[in-house]
């Protein structure tokens, strides 16, 4: 599903944010990416959706080899991925319904197929009553649920979540986590960067720990803190 080979990321200012990164993620896995602030988690996540291009090494996602991929193929590669951000990144001028439908319109889905699917995912995240609200009229947790609905509406193979519970209280965070678990149960690969120790310890999955730009731990059914 995802392969990273000898990936190194060096910014223009000379800072090396990531080096010697080698890993594979199988289809249907749930992977946490943990580590202190500035460790390189965001760089890792951004490289996955091609917002950043590695300086060296190669990334392959579902047959899209980033090294040989043409710029015009990038949007199509991104359609395999659903992205959830800490700050939600919803379009403020669109309603809840439109924000989710937009992701389907972009890939030129016929109109008749859009409405039932959008209603289905909004029901899944528990927002079927707030279709016509604008993001500014929603709580943080609700906005994050819209963001998840948008990420999964096209049935992506991978959902990448960058600190999705970072701005939320524990109870709301738990709600978001249970939605992601449900998406995972449907067979979607989840890669989630997080600081939330309780979450990682309670919902055990594979843990990748990044520190100083290196992968320092890769543990199946791991916990937030290293056992060693």
């Amino acid at each position: 599903m995802i392969q990273m080979k000898n990936v190194m990321m060096k910014y223009d200012n000379g800072v090396v944010a990531m080096k010697d990164l080698n890993l594979e993620v199988d289809p249907g896995e749930f992977v946490y990416v943990i580590g202190p602030s500035g460790a390189g988690k965001s760089t890792f996540i951004k490289m996955l959706y091609h917002e950043l291009t590695p300086s060296e090494g190669d990334i392959v996602i579902n047959n899209y080899d980033f090294k040989t991929m043409k710029p015009s193929e990038v949007p199509y590669m991104r359609r395999l991925i659903g992205i959830v951000f800490q700050d939600f990144k919803l379009l403020p001028r669109l309603t809840v319904y439109e924000n989710v439908a937009y992701a389907m319109q972009v890939i030129e889905t016929p109109d008749k197929d859009i409405r039932p699917r959008v209603l289905e995912v909004l029901k899944l995240v528990g927002l079927e009553q707030k279709l016509r609200r604008f993001p500014s009229e929603l709580s943080g947790g609700e906005q994050q649920r819209v963001s998840i609905a948008r990420a999964i509406v096209n049935k992506p193979k991978v959902v990448i979540a960058d600190e999705p519970t970072g701005n939320l209280d524990p109870e709301t965070a738990e709600g978001i986590m249970s939605i992601l678990e449900r998406v995972h149960d449907n067979g979607t690969t989840i890669i989630m960067a997080t600081h939330n120790q309780q979450m990682v310890d309670e919902h055990t999955h594979r843990v990748l720990e990044i520190a100083g730009g290196r992968l320092v731990r890769d543990e199946k059914e791991g916990s937030y803190d290293s056992e060693a």
Binding site: S72, R78, K89, L91, R93, Y102, A103, V106
Partner: peptide, 16 residues
């Protein structure tokens, strides 16, 4: 600009 960024991330082509 943010809006355009989000459009790109959900897989919109430049022409779209």
């Amino acid at each position: 600009a943010d809006e355009i960024g989000v459009m790109r991330l959900v897989g919109a082509t430049n022409s779209y």
